[in-house]
Design a protein around this nucleic acid. Sequence first.
DNA 1: AACGGCGTTGTGTTTATCACAACAGTTTCC
DNA 2: GGAAACTGTTGTGATAAACACAACGCCGTT
Lengths: 268, 268
Amino acid sequence: MGVEDVGVPNAGTTAPRRDSGVLQTADRALQVLLAFRDRPEWGVTELARELALDKSVTQRLLATLARRGFVLADPETRRYRLGASVGVLARAAERGGTLEATARPVLAELSRRIGESTILNVPHGAAYRCAVAVDADGPVRYSGTVGATIPAHGGAAGHAIFAFYPQDEVRRLLGDAPLARYNELTLTDWDTLARTYAKVRAEGVAISHGEYDANVTSVAAPCFALDQIIGSIVIIGPHDRMATKVDTAVDLVRGAAQRLGDLLSGSG
Amino acid sequence: MGVEDVGVPNAGTTAPRRDSGVLQTADRALQVLLAFRDRPEWGVTELARELALDKSVTQRLLATLARRGFVLADPETRRYRLGASVGVLARAAERGGTLEATARPVLAELSRRIGESTILNVPHGAAYRCAVAVDADGPVRYSGTVGATIPAHGGAAGHAIFAFYPQDEVRRLLGDAPLARYNELTLTDWDTLARTYAKVRAEGVAISHGEYDANVTSVAAPCFALDQIIGSIVIIGPHDRMATKVDTAVDLVRGAAQRLGDLLSGSG
DNA sequence: AACGGCGTTGTGTTTATCACAACAGTTTCC
DNA sequence: GGAAACTGTTGTGATAAACACAACGCCGTT
């Protein structure tokens, strides 16, 4: 009100100065790294255009990343690719077990509610790996083995993961050799697999009545963190018991996958 | 000389202003990420101490990393772990194929010189995977299959990788189940394996006369980039032919592994 | 209750970063 | 064949962004 306050020193400075304390230069470095999701190889100028940064800034960001081994400059083409430190960190992340610690309570809750065994599976090359397993109570139950790997085309849990991969990558991973058959229901040709994937993408859930292990019905939902497929959560049980509660299982497994994704995305 | 220049504004500014254009804030963010190699979980204060940074700086770095999914804050303990973006990047790196492109010429040169097939293997969970293979010329030769995986304890190439893993991690990966036997020479107990690893560490090379595939002799050397084990390069050939040139093979494979490591570290 | 630990937030100072420009090599395309 | 257009890299002043310090609120222990 007073006319005297001629120059309010900083009219908006009481509010948080920056976007909640995010460091611009560091954030830009991370943006550069994440750009390699879309393209395996970047030149300085084209990356600068993509991220709307100055050439010089991009060049210095890449040089900084290169010095720590996060990117690698091809001495011939002067283009950059992801470097060795990325793999090193990934191993550390796996070893650290964030995923396991976060997923276990979610699976336990899911298992309790549906009364069947639940598993978190993660992609592992051209296969998927059982990362966390929670067995149901009671004598008759499926028992997941942590660390076991199953080829990508085997079972609902695999469909719920690889349906959300870039499909050209899936084809590359599966290769040219014929796909292994586990019983008369296994999907062994690419066309059937592609149709199944389309259905899974549309419905957000994959259901298998014995495609891999003939004795069990599986209901699997994909789990996304930061819009990236991380793995799938699956409910597994004997056919007869599962038959009466497939609808419930679909709802619950979708919810659990969503919940885990939120937790892993930091919004939980 | 003049008494007047009280404050020389910048006494060395003609020289490159900073350490060759490395951005401090970005570099610090990368240091934070790499700290998770040594410990899976960090609090703000202890990480600040470790890196000799201010608490507030560390906190803002972690917040920046968290917003992009590179780290994840446990809402309970307020401690940070590596996040989902690390895995996403690792998949992109694998898909991108930097390793393959870099390794192929090195392997080709090695194969030409020794006159046998050569393979680059990379760790893949509790196994190792054939990432790049270059066959020798001639009718009698070992032919490596890209994508094939072999359990960690099978063959020289595995020893040359897992000897340089933290040994407690190797034990965890191998698990409690008995190790698969491929022939009478396969190393199937942990004690023998541990002794072999010690020898491999001391000599910088692993030699197998048919431990996995009974028909071939393998000479393998570990490959490091930025002081981290990346994989191993192996020379494989029939026993009789290899017998006459094991010493040469040891020298050559060591050199090739060193060369590849240098290339991947950006110093090539 | 007082302490010592934590993670978080505010703020003036200053310094690291930005944006623009200029440079030297390559490739491209008349 | 030559110049135009493209790379990636480096220099530099202005300025905004990051730093370092301090204060705060919170929790568990003493």
